[in-house]
C-alpha cells in the first residue's frame, strides 16, 4: 500500500538569471490503486510534478519512490497521457495503440491488449483510420488506449480532456471512471477544473505556487452527482484553500 512516495521534491529553473521554483519541497503519497487528482491554477507546478513522475524531466532535489513494484521485477511501468493526443500521424488507430510494443516477443500480448481496448473504448470501427480522420474526442480515446496497451502500473494524465468540448469531456470523464473501476490501476490525473477533480478523485492534492496547499480524501461513491450537496461541499473546500491570492 506504499504507492508512490514523494519526499521534498524540488524543481527549479533559471529564468533570465533569476531562480524560479516550479516545485518547492513537495512531499506527498499517491496510494496504490487509487485515483489521485492534482488540481490548481495554471503555473502552479502540477504539470511539472507529473512530468517528474513520468521521468520526462530531471528533478533538482528530493526523492520519488515508486514502491516495490508488487510482484513484478524491475520496477513499475509508468504510462503517460498528454493534453494533446500526440498520436503518430503515419500510423492507423490500431498501430498507434500498439506503439509501445518494441519487442517481437511482446507482439501477441500487445495484440490481445489492442483488441481488448479497441472494444472497451468503442474504437473498433475506426481501427484502420488515421489520426487526421478522427475527432478530438476519438483521438484522445486512442491516446488513452495507447497508454493502456502499454499495460502500465501507474497512468499519469496531464489535463487529457482540456482541449475537448463540454459533452465529449463529460463522456470521457465517465469512461475513465468506468475504466478505473474495472482495471484497478493507479491513476494520477492533473487538471485545473475543480469540478472535474471532485468528479474523478479519491484523493485530491491541491497545489498553488509550486507547493501542496491541501490534501483531501473524497469518499463519495462513483458515479458522482455534481449537483449533490456533498459534491458541492468538497468543491467549496478546494476553492477556499485556493482563495489566498487571487490572480
Amino acid at each position: 500500500m506504499a504507492g508512490v512516495e514523494i519526499t521534498n521534491l524540488t524543481k527549479q529553473y533559471l529564468v533570465a538569471g533569476e531562480e524560479f521554483y516550479a516545485l518547492k519541497d513537495v512531499s506527498t503519497v499517491i496510494p496504490d490503486g487509487s485515483f489521485t487528482v492534482i488540481v490548481g491554477r495554471s503555473g502552479c507546478g502540477k504539470t511539472t510534478l507529473l512530468r517528474l513522475l513520468g521521468n520526462l524531466e530531471e528533478k533538482s532535489a528530493g526523492r520519488i519512490r515508486l514502491g516495490d513494484g508488487g510482484s513484478k521485477a524491475g520496477g513499475r511501468r509508468i504510462g503517460m497521457v498528454f493534453q494533446e493526443h500526440r498520436l503518430m500521424p503515419w500510423l492507423s488507430v490500431k498501430e498507434n495503440m500498439a506503439f509501445s510494443c518494441t519487442r517481437q516477443e511482446q507482439r501477441d500480448r500487445t495484440e490481445r491488449l489492442v483488441a481488448k481496448y479497441l472494444r472497451v473504448l468503442g474504437l473498433e470501427k475506426f481501427q484502420d483510420a488515421y489520426p487526421a480522420q478522427l475527432s478530438g474526442g476519438m483521438a484522445q480515446r486512442v491516446a488513452l488506449g495507447r497508454t493502456l496497451c502499454y499495460d502500465p502500473d501507474i497512468i499519469l494524465m496531464d489535463e487529457p480532456f482540456g482541449a475537448l468540448d463540454y459533452f465529449t469531456r463529460q463522456r470521457l470523464q465517465r469512461e475513465i471512471v468506468d475504466l478505473f473501476l474495472a482495471q484497478k490501476k493507479t491513476i494520477v490525473f492533473v487538471t485545473h477544473d475543480v469540478t472535474e477533480a471532485v468528479y474523478l478523485g479519491q484523493k485530491i492534492i491541491v497545489m498553488d505556487a509550486g507547493e501542496v496547499v491541501r490534501e483531501l480524501p473524497v469518499d463519495l461513491p462513483y458515479l458522482r452527482d455534481p449537483a449533490s450537496p456533498e459534491f458541492l461541499a468538497v468543491q467549496r473546500e478546494i476553492l477556499s484553500s485556493l482563495r489566498g491570492d487571487q490572480t
Binding site: N55, L56, F82, R86, M88, F99, S100, T102
Partner: peptide
C-alpha cells in the same frame, strides 16, 4: 518534440 517525448515515455 512532443512526439519524441511520447517515445521517451514508452522507454524507446
Amino acid at each position: 518534440v512532443k512526439l519524441v517525448e511520447v517515445g521517451k515515455s514508452f522507454g524507446l
